[in-house]
Design a protein around this nucleic acid. Structure first.
Lengths: 252, 252
DNA sequence: CCAATTAGTGTCATTACAACAATAAATATA
DNA sequence: TATATTTATTGTTGTAATGACACTAATTGG
């Protein structure tokens, strides 16, 4: 049974001791072609002055994803963005105050729209390059961040998630750069062109961007194809979901 | 921040309205070479008489996985078994009594050890072939089961999870049968032998099982290799984790 | 006009793999 | 004893994916 065993008459919610439930949202974006994560600086005990992943209580009337989107919007003003549930962290001692179970989400925000607001709950809000995140973070947030990075890396290999980090219009080499950065390895230019074009997820815009050398052709992501998930694969390795959450996160 | 913003002095856990948190455990096993799932029949309101996925409250002192293992043992008497977190379901109206957030796990139990006990919370406990599960289940358990099946199928493709369903000692064709059943398609015998042997995850036992034809060679799973996860891959398709949880579950 | 720079294409050999065929080893039973 | 049956293997072959690398293209700045 999912829950308690009471009849309608005898059921009394207040009889059971309950944990608190929060959502924490690991928000990634691309700034200057580099992967960044949003952190807030805590104003109060515990972990006062420490950086932490933004999050907050789940309210009684909202679903978990609604709560996550609300948090996301409160911190960044962004709506209608890619978000997915990551993992639920619930060790009894992860918060010194009381039992707190945190349902973690991760979100990808497009490079071209960020504006931050420091809520009055926090001292500061900032984007950090994932290579230079302050350590340690508050609570078990190092672990949550590591899990999010593992998931992100894993999903890039077999989904079109990378597009969610790019602006509306982008070049193929910009896309390649994202993969290289998150995988931590160089990819062959020719092979990349071939693969991405064969996948059929690009729409030509006809636009060009001029620069030092030959002008860059600009593309748009075809949302109709592959429908957000599951299109192609780079490399072989696959680790994701469940138990395997926190392996080989060292390189990023 | 993960949680509340209070100082040590002013913090009072009782000030916030809290949801209840349960774990539900989707337990799979193999009976007569067919995939089965454990269900319990509810004794009380709501969904009295309906079949449901076993589960229960998370206690204040135990981690989520500990809670899941406790539930698993209470229902089947089984310990030390493969278990992983599946997804957290938290729609506000999924339980008519109060807000209940359920952290779902899934577990794989070896074919050779099952014994069930009906707890006094339930009318009945039974293994159901996944092809013939009563419908609808209590609460949103149809959805939880579908998510679990998707995850199981997905993970068979790139992990050694299938071994967790087999008895200590098994034949290669029995292993092949599991894959065929869960993928819902026939695999080529020759290719299967080649692939599984090349993967180097089998240990020969020297045992033979005699039957009608040529005796079957029996193997053991080499736990040292591949270490529970990530060894080989069958087929290409990959859908898993997060958003993609509930797609193409129709065929099983 | 030439170097530098960024963009994009072509080729080729290797590998992985699926489909299919053939055969070998053992036993049961007619 | 012969034959069917089942498990256990080993080819063979064509196709598709992939990695390495060389080559061509378009533009700007000197």
């Amino acid at each position: 049974m999912t829950d308690m065993e009471e009849t309608a008459e005898t059921y009394d919610p207040s009889r059971y001791e309950r944990p608190s439930v929060t959502v924490d949202v690991v928000i990634f974006t691309l700034i200057d072609r580099e992967l960044h994560v949003l952190l807030v600086r805590r104003k109060r005990w515990p972990f006062e002055g420490y950086w932490a992943i933004p999050g907050g209580f789940v309210q009684m009337h909202e679903s978990l994803e609604e709560a996550a989107r609300r948090e996301l919007e409160e911190e960044t003003g962004v709506r209608d963005i890619y978000i997915e549930q990551l993992y639920t962290f619930g060790d009894p001692d992860r918060d010194p105050r009381t039992r707190v179970i945190s349902v973690a989400y991760f979100a990808l925000v497009r490079a071209d729209r960020q504006r931050l607001r420091v809520s009055d709950e926090n001292l500061d809000v900032r984007w950090f390059p994932v290579r230079a995140v302050p350590s340690p973070l508050a609570f078990d947030h190092d672990r949550i961040l590591a899990t999010a990075l593992a998931r992100l890396r894993s999903k890039l290999e077999y989904t079109t998630l990378a597009f969610e980090l790019l602006p509306e219009v982008f070049s193929i080499l910009e896309l390649k750069h994202i993969y290289e950065q998150i995988f931590g390895e160089k990819l062959d230019k020719g092979n990349f062109y071939r693969k991405i074009k064969d996948a059929g997820v690009l729409e030509e815009t006809g636009l060009l961007r001029e620069g030092r050398g030959r002008p860059t052709r600009l593309y748009r992501f075809r949302r109709d194809r592959g429908d957000g998930q599951f299109v192609f694969r780079w490399r072989e390795a696959r680790i994701d979901a469940g138990e395997s959450q926190e392996r080989d996160l060292s390189s990023l």
